[in-house]
Design a protein around this nucleic acid. Structure first.
Length: 791
RNA sequence: GGGCCUGUGGUCUAGUGGUAUGACGUUUCCUUGACGUGGAAGAGGUACCAAGUUCGAUUCUUGGCAGGCCCACCA
């Protein structure tokens, strides 16, 4: 048969997407006897209306794995989820629609969120299907959907019953912009310009100078501290100092944590400026003078500064201090400040009752359990360990927001008892549903919890959502693979491990593969504001999905990959070459009966080399090194197969009358098997072109409905012949020499060669000679001490 | 300040204890019965720097330097 002259990727790729979907090629079969390979797909935030090549790369990298595992004979569970609840979605909707949370009703806002998430869901679906992802879309979940809400609430109840939760009103991290409590993992550090202000506190007649970056917190000052060894201040211990402008007294105390040489060595402690303040407030049982309210404005304790935002008040207070000659100096500095990663606002500390998952008391266990999971690449585990070791706060899960999963609890107003929802009723919304029954104390006066759960409370349960925990319980825990990028090890990976450990005393997945980031051509992070944003869809439309995926496979796992258009081009060229080589091969497979022929020397040479490629590709792919499979197969295909073997075998394929039918059959056998193996090994990376070629020819013989559910090539040690391979390699080297000489003499490759004298033994190269003669157009081959080529 | 990773021809990159792979680009040639979105050949790297281990290091060790990421500091 003959293949069409040209391959139109845009047309064919669309055709195969449809074919795969319509024929449910990638449907997960829960009743299959095959071993299950389950993937805990990262549910993308429904907070992007554009997807750059980095997104596409990241998802492609574990899509390769899904296809590979399927061909290895596993029943692949490959779901998709959309992370469309919580703060990320709210922030996205707020900015996109310029919404002010205080000027819109809760239900209007939620409606907007749902509308947006539906839209972005479609954007993702389009990109993922365009890239040919072998997702079973019937397994789709939304983190705002019923199943996810139920699981998140069940998770809460289970943690409560296992005494892993506590509700405290300790000072906690607070975002004045989002007006919610947040967790340590939601922090980001940002370099900001600020100033040290030297302010005078009076102690009797003495002027005490403290240095602070936050003069607006002077009215929140509850004590001055110095180091116990600091001779300058020792004698002040126990005395009182007068707070400037606000005219009240605070104690002067000592604490080991104060640094002698920082500022003036005297430190102002406020409620609350930072974590140090919180610690000293606790340890020394200081007074509480909260000046900063939830909205970031100063309250009435601030006197004339009431109602001002912190920054305004800072300016005013500095001015007033200057006027009263209470400011002795100012020094500009730049320092790292913790900001909320969602909005970039500097965080504050606030006393607010909130729920926390206790993790600080289980650091050791949380590190141990992570060791039972295989991390690829292994060094990524260090980031996890580092994060866990350095944790300073328990995981705060209360958010004073709208669009999230509600807490499944009520409180008894009379005795304060926490009343849990019945698991049978999940998911519940206590704001809308009444608690069934009475409190133990007999009271009927029951109020709902108004906060919603942290968005990570749901996304940390993706294995349980996939499992349908508390529902159908599919039995897929622990899952086989968690693919994710390295920037969310401290959040997604960490939180998921916490949950799995507490809920099931087990690991959430056997393997974790951590991929790098897609960067711009200069190696910088892509962002809209920097205008270095390459849209994935544009690249796919210009080249093809296969070419895009080919680029995605160039990076080693875990390495950042800068986007290089030339590498997409290389992918495109590969697709063309594969098409053309297949066209040639299939043309010559006419009449091939699949029977194993007695193999000619160069055919054995090719198949022997192929075995190595199969072995290396397979073992590397099993370790998530898809890039190695790609490069090995590509190299074999382009050089051994196309450049050399196809040229060598041409004479036998074209001229069976001269060279004999046996020689042709042998070539056909090698051709068929090596081409099919190459197609299969490239199928996970470039699924469209390989499917097209498979369907046009191989399907009739192989019978599998799709190359993607055919079996992965098996390494056959019987086909390996090291000695023969070496001889073949040496002769290929001779062929290359002939080409070189012809090229130097600027003559066509068709030009005949008078004689080749080989520096090899005649019986060693016997089986190769006829092919060698044909491919080099040599009139005579003889043997001698030194290689000589006579034109 | 701590940790992790990276540093290879113009660009991007592979692998390796014995001076290096491929791609893109570039130069010359070839319109060969799969392919000119091609083929062949060539030019182009003292492998970030220094010291050490070794017969020998690009590869191992240590120390620099540079870049990236993570964390801490935030009076």
């Amino acid at each position: 048969m003959e293949l069409p002259k040209k391959y139109d990727a845009q047309v064919q790729e669309e055709k195969w997407q449809k074919y795969w979907l319509e024929n449910k090629i990638f449907q997960y079969n829960p009743n299959s006897k095959k071993k299950v390979y389950s993937i805990d797909t990262p549910p993308p935030y429904a907070s992007a209306d554009h997807l750059h090549v980095g997104h596409g790369m990241h998802y492609s990298q574990f899509e390769f794995v899904a296809r590979f595992q399927r061909m290895l004979g596993r029943e692949v569970f490959f779901p998709m989820g959309y992370d469309d609840n919580g703060l990320p979605t709210e922030r996205f909707v707020e900015t996109k629609h310029k919404v002010d949370k205080s000027k819109i009703t809760k239900s209007e806002f939620i409606k907007l969120c749902l509308k947006e998430t539906e839209k972005t869901g479609k954007t993702y679906y389009d990109l993922f299907t365009r890239l040919g992802f072998s997702i079973d879309w019937s397994l789709l979940y939304h983190t705002i959907g019923d199943r996810a809400r139920r699981v998140a609430q069940k998770s809460f109840i289970d943690l409560y019953k296992k005494d892993r939760l506590e509700r405290t009103d300790m000072p906690t991290l607070w975002c004045v912009h989002c007006q919610t409590t947040i967790a340590q993992a939601d922090l980001e550090s940002s370099d900001l310009n600020s100033a040290f202000n030297d302010i005078i506190f009076k102690c009797g007649d003495q002027d005490l100078v403290i240095s602070t970056t936050r003069p607006e917190l002077v009215p929140a000052c509850v004590g001055l501290f110095f180091h116990p060894d600091d001779k300058r201040y020792k004698k002040l211990k126990g005395k009182k100092a007068k707070v400037p402008l606000f005219d009240y007294e605070v104690p002067i105390l000592s604490d080991e944590a104060v640094e002698l040489d920082k500022g003036t060595g005297l430190m102002m402690v406020c409620t609350f400026g930072d974590k140090e303040d919180v610690e000293k407030w606790l340890k020394h049982k200081l007074e509480t003078r909260v000046v900063l309210a939830e909205d970031g404005k100063l309250n009435k304790l601030a006197g004339k500064y009431e109602g001002m935002k912190a920054k305004e008040a800072r300016k005013e207070i500095i001015n007033d201090l200057k006027e009263n000659k209470l400011l002795t100096g100012q020094k500009d500095i730049s320092h790292a400040v913790n900001v909320h990663e969602r909005c970039g606002t500097e965080i504050e500390f606030l006393q607010k009752p909130q729920w926390q998952i206790k993790v600080l008391d289980k650091k050791k266990e949380l590190i141990e359990i992570a060791n039972k999971t295989n991390w690829y690449p292994a060094h990524m585990k260090v980031r996890y360990e580092h994060w866990v070791k350095n944790l300073q706060w328990n995981w705060g899960i209360s958010r004073q927001r709208y669009y999230g999963v509600p807490f499944p609890i009520w409180y008894c107003k009379k005795c304060g008892e926490v009343l849990l929802a019945d698991e049978k009723d999940l998911p519940v919304d206590p704001m809308e549903q009444k608690y069934k029954g009475k409190c133990k104390c007999g009271s009927n006066d029951i109020i709902p919890e108004e906060d919603v759960l942290d968005t990570w409370m749901t996304s940390s349960c993706t294995p349980e959502i996939n499992e349908d925990w508390g529902g159908k319980d599919k039995g897929i825990l622990p899952m086989s693979l968690r693919p994710q990028a390295h920037d969310i090890i401290r959040t997604w990976a960490f939180y998921t491990i916490v949950k799995s450990y507490y809920h099931h005393n087990n690991i959430p997945w056997t393997d974790v593969m951590i991929s790098g980031h897609g960067l711009d051509p200069k190696g910088k992070k892509m962002s809209k504001s920097k205008n270095n944003f390459v849209v994935a869809q544009d690249v796919i439309s210009k080249y093809s999905a296969d070419a895009f995926r080919f680029w995605s496979a160039t990076a080693k796992l875990g390495e950042d990959l800068s986007y290089q258009e030339k590498d997409v081009l290389t992918g495109q060229k590969f697709v063309t070459k594969l098409w053309n080589a297949s066209k040639f091969g299939i043309m010559h497979l006419e009449g091939y009966d699949g029977k194993k022929a007695k193999l000619d020397a160069f055919d054995s040479w090719l198949l022997s080399k192929l075995q190595k490629v199969i072995k290396v590709s397979t073992t590397n792919f099993e370790q998530y090194e898809y890039s190695k499979c790609k490069s090995e197969t590509e190299n074999f295909f382009w050089h051994d197969f196309c450049d050399n073997y196809l040229e060598i075998s041409k004479d036998r394929l074209y001229n069976p009358d001269k060279r004999g039918e046996e020689g042709k059959k042998s070539a056909q056998y090698a051709l068929y098997n090596s081409l099919l193996s190459v197609l299969k090994m490239m199928a996970p990376i470039t699924p469209f072109i390989t499917e097209e070629i498979y369907q046009l020819y191989f399907k009739n013989i192989e019978k599998d409905k799709s190359i993607h559910i055919s079996s992965w090539p098996k390494h056959d040690s019987k086909l390996v012949d090291e000695k023969l391979e070496k001889t073949g390699d040496k002769l290929v080297e001779v062929i290359s020499q002939v080409r070189k000489i012809k090229s130097e003499k600027k003559v066509s490759l068709k030009e005949p060669v008078k004689e080749i004298i080989l520096d090899m033994k005649e019986d060693e190269v016997k089986g190769f000679i006829d092919d060698l003669k044909a491919v080099t157009k040599a009139e005579k081959i003889s043997f001698g001490e030194k290689l000589k080529i006579v034109l």
